[in-house]
Design a protein around this nucleic acid. Sequence first.
DNA 1: TTATTAAAAATTGTATACAAAGTTTCGCGA
DNA 2: TCGCGAAACTTTGTATACAATTTTTAATAA
Lengths: 232, 232
Amino acid sequence: MSSRTRDEIIYENLHAAIFEVQLPPGTRLPEDELAETFGVSRTGIRKVLQRLAHERLVDIIPNRGASVAQPSVKEAREVFAARRMIECAALPQVIGHARPAQIKALGAIMLKEDEAQLAGNRAAAIRYSGEFHLALIRIADNDTLAHFLGELVARSSLIIATYGAPIAVSCRHSEHEQILDLISNRATAEAVAWMDQHLLSVERSCSFAQEEAEPDLKTILGSIAQRGTGLA
Amino acid sequence: MSSRTRDEIIYENLHAAIFEVQLPPGTRLPEDELAETFGVSRTGIRKVLQRLAHERLVDIIPNRGASVAQPSVKEAREVFAARRMIECAALPQVIGHARPAQIKALGAIMLKEDEAQLAGNRAAAIRYSGEFHLALIRIADNDTLAHFLGELVARSSLIIATYGAPIAVSCRHSEHEQILDLISNRATAEAVAWMDQHLLSVERSCSFAQEEAEPDLKTILGSIAQRGTGLA
DNA sequence: TTATTAAAAATTGTATACAAAGTTTCGCGA
DNA sequence: TCGCGAAACTTTGTATACAATTTTTAATAA
């Protein structure tokens, strides 16, 4: 499998670094620095940055360069709403196609996620948690849909990094276990309901309140002024 | 609205040309030729081609350049399956949010599509037909989802160009009218059922049979051999 | 001290040059 | 005539150079 071209490798590295929150939201990504790091010219880097921008994992502002994306609250809600629609809608297909070996593989991923959690390996926990959702939808044998969900899962990581409670890491293991049970029992309706609740609970674990209202400069300045301006 | 950078304009031009089947699937897109056409260097063209490749509107084969994508049968089925999931799942949201002005706007698009059909303006008919589906989902106020559907709708155009009957142009006007009626009456369940049927009927209007089976060289050669090899 | 402005530095945008890979053409031999 | 192979040509891949823009720094005046 050496079809992994050099661009591909750079992409995978950057993607993983962002997905696993080694590069937190907002981190600047100067072309020169990346080019030097990966030992290529800016040309190759730009291509990768464009791709990541298209996946909404980095923001590119014209003439001002790239940085790890900082999803807005609206975007965060959209991503979770889209995930609920797609993952729930695909679940019947998943259950229809699921073979024992695939369910076993899901269990293995879940186990690794659990191990990573216990070991305090945050990056691995995030990776396996996302991998669980992706391995799940891949059973539906729809690459197009799986590709979309891949983007949404990666963006979810950025969202949780931005708005999530510092401790809560993405998905709770027990919920994945529950969904897996329902799938292997072919309990479609219950599985869909659980998946919906699972994704809602992840969304609820984020605190969007602070930015729910547009950051209002006047309000902020007003509250500062209250503390006394020294004027008058 | 002069925030349309030069790349953006090139992208929009190429996208429209592909979407409206002015550049049929399989058309080669040499960088030099495009660069000359748009009066820029290859650098700018490559960026646009990469973007279109990410949207699966063009295929890029390393060292062999870009061409308008030719969706496989599997990909075609995936795209329609994804559209059914997304458009049906979003419909409740659409109906919940729909304001009279928006429904009126949908009606206007439908009218233009109808006019284009009658005038035999195939490109405009395709454009408005896609625009109807996009305007519809935009009512749900989820840019993320609308963006995904935008890609799926454009790919649908390529699919229909590749597998569709020469006469049948995308969506039948009457079906759009029916869906619009059900939405304005807030008949959610019926609207979802109609949307599902509508998308299925578009899919069924394509003839995937020829390529449904993997193009099997041995079979083809065998049937040729049957006609007599002249050997022995 | 603070605000304003100009110059300098850093960063991105775009074109061009050269290298690498692929395609075509032409000629040679069977 | 047909098949094979090499050279010429075409096209893409990558790096580098220079232009344009933005950001930072420094200096000056209120």
